[in-house]
Design a protein around this nucleic acid. Structure first.
Lengths: 103, 103
DNA sequence: TTTTGTAGTCATGTTTTTCTGACTTATTGC
DNA sequence: GCAATAAGTCAGAAAAACATGACTACAAAA
């Protein structure tokens, strides 16, 4: 069973659906930073130029709700939280790659 | 010489660039409607449910500025304006197709 | 010459997003 | 105990996006 995105809430434009789930000022950058390795809240804050807590917080929450990211509490050394690409999130990687080939 | 998109204004995230040029409430729909055949202002207004003149006007202008659409004045029967996918716009079609395959 | 069709603009108002700075809670190092 | 790090929340302000209704300009048809 292959993983299929399903966020097509009542519209007939797939691209629109997908653009929507990555819409907002910070989501694409967050998503990209999560592509390679799990990422943490404060790291995002440091790495994304001009971003603020609130917006990152909201974006992460939405990405999690949409099922693109998983929030994982890591019970280690300095107890912390990691955001990782979910299976659904990973299914978007090819699109990202294709976008890269266009630029 | 292949056509390459270049809207990568100072950021290092291609996906972001692309998501950005199709960001906004109406751009994806406009773009999709222009995929198949040239489209006209009033037609967009009729076909896009809930859209208003102003927003369509602004979106068209931006898509034109970004080089995705060409504005063509058709000097025929009822003199009118057509918006068509530019070469750059057409280079996005494969991405749209791939998005479709994900949903 | 009045009306219709096409393609808009403009001023204004509303709604949605984003930003700012202060505050919180939990864990760990000193 | 005290400060620092990590991961946030919250209220309010500012900015950006979107909507509304009135208006414009041009050409052609009636």
């Amino acid at each position: 069973m292959t993983t299929k995105i399903n966020i097509n809430s009542g519209n007939n434009c797939p691209a629109e659906s997908l653009l929507k789930i990555l819409s907002g000022k910070w989501k694409p950058q967050i998503f990209r930073l999560a592509l390679n390795s799990p990422i943490r809240f404060n790291t995002l804050l440091r790495q994304i130029d001009g971003a603020n807590k609130q917006s990152i917080s909201v974006a992460l929450k939405e990405l999690e709700e949409q099922g693109l990211l998983d929030r994982v509490v890591v019970k280690l050394k300095p107890l912390h939280v990691e955001y990782t690409l979910s299976e659904k999130g990973q299914s978007l990687i090819p699109v990202f790659r294709q976008l890269e080939s266009l630029i």
